[in-house]
């Protein structure tokens, strides 16, 4: 599955710089609002669903080579966080729906928690 399919199907807003999202592979999904869990549980090229919007999420996503972050419930990261994400080449997306709903839709699309 590529990131463009996800953005189109879930009608997500792109918070960071636009690019060709169809070339970006998404291999799995992960959801947590606790950084320590994400650090141990999320996989490279995965998509991370969270309602956290503070700047620490960018550092974690960069560290883990995540494909993108979906920030739920329209939580708005500040400009500094967005700048930092652009700088580190992290894609941040946004949805008005809560974690549960976003995951449900990704699951419908066939995305699973593990790589295979």
């Amino acid at each position: 599955m590529n990131l463009n399919e996800i953005i189109q199907n879930l009608n997500l807003k792109v918070l960071t710089n636009s690019k060709d999202f169809s070339t970006i592979k998404v291999k799995s999904g992960y959801c947590s609002d606790l950084l320590s869990c994400v650090m141990t549980g999320a996989e490279p090229e995965g998509i991370w669903i969270t309602l956290m919007s503070h700047s620490n999420i960018v550092a974690v996503a960069a560290l883990l080579d995540l494909a993108a972050i979906i920030i739920t419930e329209d939580a708005q990261p500040d400009q500094q966080t967005i700048d930092k994400a652009n700088e580190k080449d992290i894609i941040m997306l946004s949805s008005p729906d809560p974690n549960y709903e976003v995951i449900g839709q990704l699951w419908e699309l066939g995305l699973r928690a593990t790589k295979n």
């Binding site: 999904g29 995951i103 928690a113």
Partner: peptide, 8 residues
């Protein structure tokens, strides 16, 4: 299960 799977 993780949050993602359980919710899905």
């Amino acid at each position: 299960l993780g949050m993602f799977e359980a919710c899905g």
